[in-house]
Design a protein around this nucleic acid. Structure first.
Length: 415
DNA sequence: TCTGGGGTCCTAGGACCC
DNA sequence: TCTGGGGTCCTAGGACCC
């Protein structure tokens, strides 16, 4: 069968739902006075000590040149705070040119997000959240292409009535097209790209509008004379694969409306991590160790919350100016042990003993969540533990004598 | 004001096994 | 003693996303 043999109803109806300026919108929910005003939500923002970076700027704030990821200091230069404004004071900012700054409150945003998820999940389809403010929805089972637009309008209306938020939604037969479509008519947008329209829809767009094409790949595309998705779609897929590996061909196909990635319910996480910037870069070993220990504790907390086991412990070290190094160690069996996690992380840190470090992170990966792995943990701990005592574990026992212990471990490693 | 924190996926080389 | 290939696991780094 060829593509041209397919009819409209052979293509899935996929929605990409993107909540507009989500953090700022949440702040307006609990503080309606902020509606229509410029709102900036800052990470690490503190009224007394304005620092950190912009997480979300409302459209009104964007009018003043405030953008995501911008340092708060720069944002304040473009848009002063209302608390500092005074109409009667010549030296103070004009209240008409000032905005409202709020710190990030993830707990609250999560609550709001869950409410919206409830609405999206109530539809007959497959729901896949992406981060806190986006989701894909496969509603092929419930809707045909002819009804996709009115279906989406109703969904948007329900989100607005029930949760008080506006969403921008893209509807398309592929994830990649739906993703871009939701972005085209923000805020409160709705764009349907039907099967057969995808290639024309992509053609005029810049390559970096394609999901997965960042600054590095975009500039490599430019070197090849590829500026738009249309250029990409006209390029030689073999040459693209040669240069970019499998991604090259995938990008090419995406611009043609071919994207086999399905919308699927969320999977278990592949890794859990915590990282922390140190105020100032430091060489002090004790300081670095304290950071790593604390992060290891917090990773352990998350592991326990999620009832996870892991095989790999990793350490991330960022050296100035922005030099990322990672080290990791994999253990033979899935386990969780706070002390072992801490020790492993500290051991990995040793290599960076005298290095200047600005940020550290601790990570566990090779995760498993199934109950069945638990016994393996016990066996392994007993087998390798220096102080391990002989005990019945999972119907098997481990003699506490050196050579036999080693033998058991070897056998365990094999099977 | 220098780039926060939590993730995913891919690549490439080396070790090791058959 | 030399030769070759395939497969898997582990590690480090990089690009990218929200």
């Amino acid at each position: 069968m060829r593509l041209s043999d397919l009819s409209e109803k052979d293509y899935p109806v996929l929605l990409h739902v993107d909540l507009d300026c989500f953090y700022a919108a949440c702040e307006r929910l609990r503080e309606p006075g902020l509606r229509g005003e410029p709102v900036v939500v800052g990470m690490g923002y503190d009224e007394k000590e304005p620092k950190g970076a912009v997480a979300t700027a409302s459209y009104e704030a964007r009018e003043f040149g405030v953008e995501s990821a911008m340092p708060i200091g720069e944002a304040l230069r473009r848009l002063p705070r209302m608390v500092d404004a005074d109409a009667d004071d010549q030296k103070a900012p004009d209240p008409g040119e000032a905005g409202f700054y709020r710190p990030v409150d993830m707990e609250f945003y999560k609550e709001v997000s869950m409410e919206v998820r409830g609405i999206l999940k109530s539809r007959d389809g497959v729901f896949e959240p992406v981060g806190i403010d986006e989701a894909y929805l496969d509603v092929s089972g419930a809707v045909e292409w002819g009804g996709a637009e009115s279906f989406t309008e109703e969904l948007k209306a329900e989100v607005e009535e029930e949760a008080g938020l506006t969403a921008s939604v893209g509807v398309a037969p592929t994830r990649s097209a739906a993703k871009v479509a939701s972005d085209r008519e923000k805020p409160d947008g709705l764009l349907v790209v039907k099967p057969g329209e995808v290639e024309d829809f992509f053609a005029p767009l810049d390559v970096e509008d394609i999901h997965g094409v960042g600054p590095v790949t975009a500039s490599e595309f430019r070197d090849m004379g590829i500026e738009t998705a249309g250029d990409l779609s006209a390029a030689d897929p073999d040459a693209l694969e040669e240069r970019f590996g499998s991604r090259g061909r995938e990008f090419y196909l995406v611009t043609k409306g071919v994207d086999p990635r399905e919308v699927t319910p969320p999977d278990d996480p592949k890794s859990l991590s915590k990282e922390k910037s140190m105020g100032d870069a430091t060489k002090d070993l004790d300081t670095k160790r304290r950071y790593v220990e604390r992060l290891a504790q917090r990773v352990a907390d998350r592991v326990e919350e999620r009832d996870a086991l892991y095989r790999t412990v990793g350490l991330k070290v960022v050296k100035p100016p922005f030099d990322v190094r990672t080290r990791e160690r994999t253990f033979p069996g899935p386990f969780h042990d706070r002390e072992l996690l801490r020790e492993a992380a500290l051991e990995l840190l040793e290599e960076f003993g005298d290095a200047e470090v600005r940020k550290v992170g601790v990570r566990v990966s090779n995760l498993s969540f199934s109950e069945g792995d638990q016994s393996t943990l016990g066996e392994w701990k007993e087998a390798v533990g220096e102080r391990g005592t002989c005990r019945e574990v999972g119907g098997d026992s481990f003699p506490d004598r050196g050579s036999e212990k080693q033998e058991r471990l070897d056998r365990f490693l094999e099977g």
